[in-house]
C-alpha cells in the first residue's frame, strides 16, 4: 500500500516483479540496480538459495526524486517464481502498488506463464484485490530466443486485462526501463486519483498536518537515517556539540535534522540518567560508521531533561537531612537514658 508521510515529506510505493520461475525477474532488478544513478538507489538485497534462485524476495529501494515537494520512493521486490513457493510469493505480493509481470517467451514456458498469471489473480483476490484494479505492466522477456513465441500470441492469451506490454531482453537491459517507466506512471497516477478535496485542503492549509514546510528539490528526507548510499550532510558538524542541545529543543520532533556525520551524544533524560551511573562502558560503536560516515542520534530535544541529575541530587539531600534528624533523636534518647541511669545510681548510693 502507498504510504504518504507528510512528516518525512515522502511517498513510498511497493512494486513487485511477478512471473514464472527463471523468467527474468531478478535479472530485471539487477539491471535496474546496475544502471540507476548511484544517488537514487539503495542496496540490492537477495534472499536466495545456494543455487541463486530467489527463496523469499529480492529488494532494492529506488528514489525517483522529489515530486510536488514529496520525495517519491519505489521499493522494488521480486517474488520466487517456482510453484512450490506460493506462500512466500503471496506474502511479498501483499500491499503491492504495482506489478510488472515478466513472461518468458520460450515456447516451453508458455503454460507456466498462463499458470503464473492465474496465480497472480488468485493471490491478489486472497488479499481482497481485483487484478484489474491494480496497476499492471507485462514484459515479454527473452525476445532474443530463436524460437520465441510471437508477442501477439502471448498477448492474446496472457494480457486479459489490457495492460501495457513491452518486449525485452532483460539480460542485455533491453526493455527493462521502459517497463518500469510505464508502471511508474500508472502507480503515480493512481496515487493522485484518491483523496477527497476536503482532505487536500486540510493538508495544504496546515490542518492536522501542521504547516507544511516548503521543500526544495534538493532536500533530502528530513528524518531518514543515513543509508550507506546516502551522502552525508557535509554541512553538519562531525559531532554535535552539547551546547547546541537547547537550540535543538526548538525543532519540531517530527522534523528532526537530517543525519549528520559522527555520533550525536544522547540528549534525552535516559541519557542523563545513564550518564549519572558510576561506570559507563563505552560501546564499540561509539564512533562514526566508516561505511556510512554517519550515525547520529536524533532524539527529540523536546524530551531532553537537562535537570534530571539535579533532580536526583535534590532527592539525595532530602534523604540525608532525614537521616540527620533520626541520628540527633537517637543521641538525645541515649543522653536522657544515660542521665536517668546516673540519677538512679546517685540516689541508691
Amino acid at each position: 500500500m502507498v504510504q504518504i508521510n507528510f512528516a518525512l515529506r515522502e511517498i513510498n510505493c511497493k512494486v513487485v516483479y511477478y512471473g514464472p520461475g527463471m523468467s527474468g525477474k531478478t535479472t530485471n532488478l539487477e539491471i535496474v540496480h546496475k544502471k540507476a544513478p548511484e544517488e537514487n538507489k539503495g542496496e540490492l538485497t537477495s534472499i536466495a538459495t545456494d543455487g541463486d534462485r530467489t527463496l523469499f524476495f529480492d529488494f532494492m529501494p529506488l528514489d525517483l526524486g522529489t515530486i510536488a515537494g514529496m520525495r517519491t520512493r519505489f521499493h522494488l521486490y521480486t517474488v520466487p517464481g517456482q510453484v512450490y513457493y506460493n506462500s512466500t510469493r503471496k506474502l511479498v505480493l501483499q500491499g503491492a502498488d504495482g506489478i510488472i509481470f515478466i513472461a518468458d517467451s520460450d515456447p516451453d514456458k508458455f503454460e507456466e506463464n498462463l499458470e503464473s498469471m492465474e496465480n497472480l489473480r488468485v493471490n491478489l483476490a486472497e488479499h481482497g484485490r481485483d487484478i484489474s484494479d491494480v496497476p499492471l505492466v507485462i514484459q515479454y522477456n527473452k525476445r532474443d530466443l530463436p524460437n520465441a513465441i510471437e508477442s501477439a500470441e502471448l498477448d492474446a492469451k496472457l494480457n486479459l486485462y489490457g495492460a501495457p506490454t513491452f518486449d525485452a531482453v532483460a539480460r542485455s537491459g533491453e526493455g527493462v526501463f521502459p517497463s518500469l517507466k510505464s508502471l511508474s506512471a500508472l502507480v503515480l497516477e493512481n496515487i493522485s486519483k484518491v483523496g477527497s478535496k476536503g482532505a487536500q485542503m486540510r493538508n495544504q492549509s496546515g490542518g492536522a498536518a501542521g504547516p507544511v514546510r516548503p521543500v526544495r528539490a534538493t532536500d533530502t528526507a528530513p528524518g531518514r537515517p543515513a543509508s550507506p548510499r546516502t551522502a552525508p550532510n557535509r554541512n553538519a558538524p562531525a559531532r554535535a556539540p552539547a551546547q547546541r542541545r537547547p537550540a535543538a529543543a526548538q525543532r519540531p520532533a517530527s522534523n528532526p535534522r537530517p543525519a549528520a556525520p559522527g555520533r550525536t551524544p544522547r540528549t534525552d533524560a535516559a541519557t542523563a540518567v545513564a550518564a549519572a551511573r558510576p561506570v559507563v562502558k563505552p560501546r564499540q560503536d561509539a564512533r562514526p560508521n566508516p561505511k556510512t560516515g554517519a550515525s547520529p542520534r536524533s532524539s527529540s530535544a523536546r524530551h531532553m531533561v537537562p535537570t534530571a541529575r539535579p533532580g536526583v541530587n535534590i532527592n539525595r539531600s532530602e534523604h540525608a537531612s532525614g537521616g540527620s534528624k533520626i541520628f540527633i533523636a537517637l543521641a538525645v534518647i541515649l543522653l536522657l537514658a544515660a542521665a536517668g541511669v546516673a540519677s538512679y545510681m546517685f540516689l541508691t548510693l
Binding site: 504518504i4 507528510f6 511517498i11 537514487n40 525517483l64 526524486g65 522529489t66 515530486i67 510536488a68 515537494g69 514529496m70 517519491t72 526501463f177 521502459p178 518500469l180 517507466k181 511508474s184 506512471a185 503515480l188 497516477e189 496515487i191 493522485s192 486519483k193 484518491v194 483523496g195 477527497s196 476536503g198 482532505a199 487536500q200 486540510r202 493538508n203 495544504q204 498536518a209
Partner: peptide, 21 residues
Amino acid sequence: QDAGAPRDYAKQAKNQIDGFF
C-alpha cells in the same frame, strides 16, 4: 478525511518520470 498526494502531484510526476528515465 485523509489527504491524497499534493494537488499538482500527477502533473509533476509525469515530468519527473520522463526526466528520470
